[in-house]
Design a protein around this nucleic acid. Sequence first.
DNA 1: GAGCATGAACGCTCAACCGT
DNA 2: ACGGTTGAGCGTTCATGCTC
Length: 215
Amino acid sequence: MSGSRSYGDLCGIARALDVVGERWALLMVRELVFGPKRFVDLHRGLSGVSHNVLSQRLRELEDSGVVARRVLGPPAGARVYELTPRGRELEPVLLALGRWGSSIPPASTSATELSTDALAFALKTTFVPAAASDLCGRYQLRLGDDAFYAEVAEGRLHIARGEISDAAATITCGVRVLQDLVFGGRDLDDAVHAADAAVTGDASTLRRFLRCFAS
DNA sequence: GAGCATGAACGCTCAACCGT
DNA sequence: ACGGTTGAGCGTTCATGCTC
């Protein structure tokens, strides 16, 4: 909406929506919260968005200073998109919006499986500090080709993309399985016995970690 | 106010194109 | 070949104006 369409309203909310109020825009920001992504990876994470709309939104967000385009060095040479510091300021907005939206029943047409980044972001929005008040540790979450780690300390949660070497426990599974374990009430042992998940390290602390989220 | 017709805006798929 | 952009054609949505 940074182009021709504008609410033409002086209000800050209207001006924010002029930038990120277009369809897909905030979901694109969500997909970039955990780090830079290539065009095709963004497209994979946002099932339903067409190529031209994704291309147009990226250009609009780039023009607005929310997203920056960067060319990776050789040998890849691929272009990636990442949030600017200005774009990063949207993260608490997305967290608040995610918490607000999590109480809304999903539409019948909604996909039943989250994207990897959407699941990681959902962990942030549904984290219950009181449930983790006496929990302290780092956990490796391997979801398909993606790796995230979660750090819980003093009732706070930090999630980032990447590998760590000092994880108290590591779980390797599909996005849907972790989604069911956290939000669907599925038992960890059941998932392991069914070979849907593999756990190394301290399974009991991992089980506690999985119960720190509002389902 | 309700119902309908119209046209603009929008988003989609598909295909082709360009640059590396 | 891959990553990304552009355009055509089509269907849907929505605002607007008109009639009853």
